[in-house]
């Protein structure tokens, strides 16, 4: 039924459609140039990908948030408060902060 005309592909093997030796020889002068340019183009892709990830999605480490200086006395007080609240099983310790 199908009447597709026979397409002559003299540079591809008829059985598997692979490149013939003639075609491989014809392509050989371009091999190095192709590989160099292909590598460069892959580099552009991965470079853009890396730039997008590193520069635009940089993790915020809160370095710009100022931390107020705290004295040793205040630190001891806070630690004592924390220990007290941890040991205290009284429900009053569950009161919201500041009340």
């Amino acid at each position: 039924m199908a009447i597709l005309p026979h397409q002559r592909k003299g540079y591809y093997s008829k059985s598997q459609g692979r490149m013939s030796n003639a075609l491989l020889r014809a392509r050989e002068p371009y091999l190095k140039k192709n590989l160099i340019l292909g590598g460069f183009l892959f580099g552009i892709f991965f470079g853009t990908l890396g730039y997008t990830y590193k520069k635009l999605l940089v993790s915020d480490e809160f370095q710009e948030v100022p931390i107020p200086p705290i004295s040793e006395e205040e630190l001891k007080l806070l630690k004592a408060e924390y220990e007290a609240s941890k040991n205290n099983t009284n429900a009053s310790s569950l009161k919201p902060y500041g009340k």
Binding site: K9, Y12, S15, Q16, G17, R18, M19
Partner: peptide, 16 residues
Amino acid sequence: MFKNFKMITTTNHKDI
């Protein structure tokens, strides 16, 4: 036997 895989393995730009 690999004839049937021609269209799978082809590198011809027209086939592709």
